[in-house]
Simulated scan of single mutants.
Amino acid sequence: MKKFSTLLALCLLGSVSVFAGNYNVDTTHSNVGFKVKHMMISEVSGKFDTFNGSFEYDEKTKTLKSLNGKIDVNSINTANTKRDDHLKAPDLFDVQKYPSITFSLDKVKGDKAYGKLTMHGVTKNVILALENNGVVKDPWGNTRVGLGLSGQLNRKDYGITWNTALEAGGVAVGDVIKLDVQLEGILTQ
């Protein structure tokens, strides 16, 4: 009877792991975007063109188990070369000293993702809204998972403080950065 109990326990544990899978972020179908107030009257959008990541997702429970991502800050793209060059400069992102932004998931609770975001040499705990878009098989037989992460942070919390006062009042760049990350992962074999 003891052997049967051990075998049953191993089968149950094995069946749980059958549904969990490791995924690599498909960067051609993913986006790491942001928005920030400009001159207090509009928002400027941007994105990072170069990033990578991986995550573990349990199909049975439809739960994100882990997520790690890395962004190449030098790939910032706001569709304006002059602005992008300034964003990379020492008074803002300082890409020579801080070339990457990283995120590591700590836990998921309901529709919230809790993790650590490191930017400009500073690590902070963040809470992001998590959108679970589910699992599909693509036409080539690959299993894919879609996830969305959104939220906001204060750039000054990460030591990115540059700004210019406007003659009419206010500042050139807002402090609050809105994040919009759309990830599509492919199950690794």
Rank of each mutant, 00 (worst) to 15 (best):
N154G: 03
N68Q: 15
K116A: 05
Q152H: 14
D84N: 07
V73K: 02
F51A: 02
Q189F: 07
K88A: 13
L10F: 15
E59A: 11
A89H: 10
A20D: 08
A89G: 12
C11W: 04
P139D: 01
D91S: 04
S54L: 01
S5P: 00
R83S: 11
S150V: 01
L153N: 07
K60T: 11
E56D: 08
R144Y: 08
G146W: 12
T27I: 04
V16N: 11
T161L: 02
N74G: 07
S42D: 13
V25H: 01
L128S: 05
T102M: 08
N125R: 08
D111N: 15
L147D: 00
E59W: 03
I71A: 10
L7M: 15
D85Q: 14
N22K: 14
T102S: 12
I101F: 02
V32N: 10
V44D: 10
D91W: 00
N163I: 03
K37D: 12
K97W: 06
K65E: 12
T28H: 09
S15V: 10
K47H: 11
L67M: 08
L13R: 06
G121P: 07
T161V: 11
G170T: 07
M119T: 02
A9D: 04
G151H: 08
V145E: 02
L117T: 02
S75N: 05
R155L: 11
P99N: 09
L128D: 03
V36D: 04
L147Y: 04
D111E: 12
G69H: 01
E43R: 13
V32C: 08
L183A: 09
W140H: 10
I76K: 01
V95R: 06
S150G: 12
V122A: 09
K37W: 09
D94Y: 09
A129M: 04
I101P: 05
V122I: 15
T78S: 14
V136I: 15
T143E: 05
L130S: 01
A113G: 03
V176Q: 11
K178L: 11
V108L: 12
T188V: 11
G169D: 02
P90E: 04
K65N: 14
V136D: 05
D106Y: 00
L117D: 01
G174I: 08
A168D: 06
S100A: 06
A165F: 07
V122K: 15
G148W: 08
G134H: 08
F4V: 15
T161P: 02
F93A: 01
N132P: 03
A79N: 15
T118E: 15
L7G: 10
N132G: 00
D157I: 00
L64N: 03
K82Q: 13
K137A: 05
Y57T: 02
G121N: 04
L183K: 00
